[in-house]
Each structure stands twice: as structure tokens, then as C-alpha cells.
Design a protein around this nucleic acid. Sequence first.
DNA 1: TTAATATATGAACAATTATTCATATGTTCA
DNA 2: TGAACATATGAATAATTGTTCATATATTAA
Lengths: 126, 126
Amino acid sequence: MVNSEYNIPLCESTCIHEDVVNRVKKNLPDDEILSEAANFFKVFGDKTRIKILSALLDSEMCVCDIACLLEMSQSAISHQLRVLKSNNLVKNRKEGKVVYYSLEDEHVKAILDQGIVHIRHKNRGE
Amino acid sequence: MVNSEYNIPLCESTCIHEDVVNRVKKNLPDDEILSEAANFFKVFGDKTRIKILSALLDSEMCVCDIACLLEMSQSAISHQLRVLKSNNLVKNRKEGKVVYYSLEDEHVKAILDQGIVHIRHKNRGE
DNA sequence: TTAATATATGAACAATTATTCATATGTTCA
DNA sequence: TGAACATATGAATAATTGTTCATATATTAA
């Protein structure tokens, strides 16, 4: 097991296929990109947020209407909208006291749909 | 605020636009589906798992090689592979002591790609 | 200006999840 | 059979994340 010090990670466990590990390592996207991708998916990985996004797929809504729809507190919804907004999944516009949220773009819809398609596909297979 | 007891949720906060809430409520996919979708995305919402999936995009790998590649413990990887497998994102085959993991299907690749595209798109916009 | 209302937010708490540690299982080879 | 090795797994711990609670900000209307 020749681990030349600079390009191969030292690892607790033995690498069985050093060649494979090296090749894959070379092709793997930047750590930074993969982290961002994980964080991006994480935003979709919450029931409350998925529900909010699904609702906004239908029409823009204000905070208290979303709270009403999901039977959750205004505060909880507001916190989650913040997460969605800071990840560029929703945008908002203010009209007096009322803040209306809507989906940022069609891309969000595409991803949501893909998730739902996968579920349906999986459920059919069982 | 006329909340007829049976088709409108009682909610802490006032609904400003009852009509919108009702319409959206009608169109919203089943709670069950949305939960499953959230759980599905949750699986992608972890750096370690995203890295494993990205690696497997390149070629099938055994557990210890993945551990080596990610510089993580064999146990941590094994636990995460279990999560991926129980969500039908990877499959495995056994060859003697060694267990090789690979992506379950092309669908996984499509979703991963979509995440990366979104990141790139977002980063370009900033 | 004051009261009422819609939303936002910090901090505490509750819940969930990832990793570690110790060890079990199953396979190969001597 | 026993030693070595690859992987799996239960339980404990560490880390992260969602919700609540109290309260702040901002707007409207009286």
C-alpha cells in the first residue's frame, strides 16, 4: 500500500482499490460545491418547508394565511420563510402590513416535481 | 371571519384571505406524499451522503474505499450507506468479504445534477 | 399619538440526526 | 479451527435543527 504522502489521503481503514479511490477523487466536484448542494437539498428536506413551497406553487400567500393553512404558529412559518428566502427559493413583496411570498422561479417547481415523481415511482414499485 | 367548522382549519392566526387558503388547501398534495418527499430530499441533505453519491456516480466502490476517499470511519460510512440503501438510492453486491455499492438508477443522477446546476446558477447570479 | 395588527427575530428548549465506540457477523486463508 | 479482515449495528454522545415564547418592528386606522 504505497501512500505517497501528498496526493493520497491517509485513512483509518485500508484502501482496497487505491486506483479506484484516486480516480474517483480526481473526478469528485469541489468540496465547496458538494457542501452547497447538500445544504440546498436540506432546505427541501423538511415537511413544513415542502408544504409551504407546494402551497406557493398554487399562488402567492401572506404569512398568516400560510400559518392558517398549515395550522402552525405565525412565528414558526416566519422562521421557515426566512430559511426559504435566504436560499433563494422564495421572494416576497410588501403591501402595507402584509407580506406576500411567492416562489422565486420555475426551477423550484422542477425540483419539487422531481421529488414527487420519485415518490410515486418508488411507491408504484412496492 | 366565517369559519364553517368542517372544511376550514381553526388556526391561531387570522386568515386574511380565506378564499385563497381554501383553494390552496384543496390543491395541496396529500400530507403523506409531502412527508415522503421531504424525507426523500432529506437524504440528499447531508454532506457525507452527497459525497458518497457523487463518488458512486463515477464507479461502484466498496465500503472501505469510500471511507478512505472521504477520510471518515468505516462505521460512519456504513451507517450512511444504510440510509442510502433503505431509501433506494444505492444498491450493493457482495464479493467475498467485500461489499460493493453503486447507484440504484439514473434517476438519482438526475436529481444530483439538478442540485449542482442550481448551485452553479445561484453562484453565477451573485 | 395610541391601539390594533402583520411580520420578524433572539434565545431557550425540544427533537432529530450524525458520528463514535465497542462489538457482532460473516468470509477467507493458513 | 483460529486469525485476519470487511462490514454491520446498537447504544451513547455530539451536533444540528425546528418550534415556542416573548418581544421588537413596522404599518394602518382611529
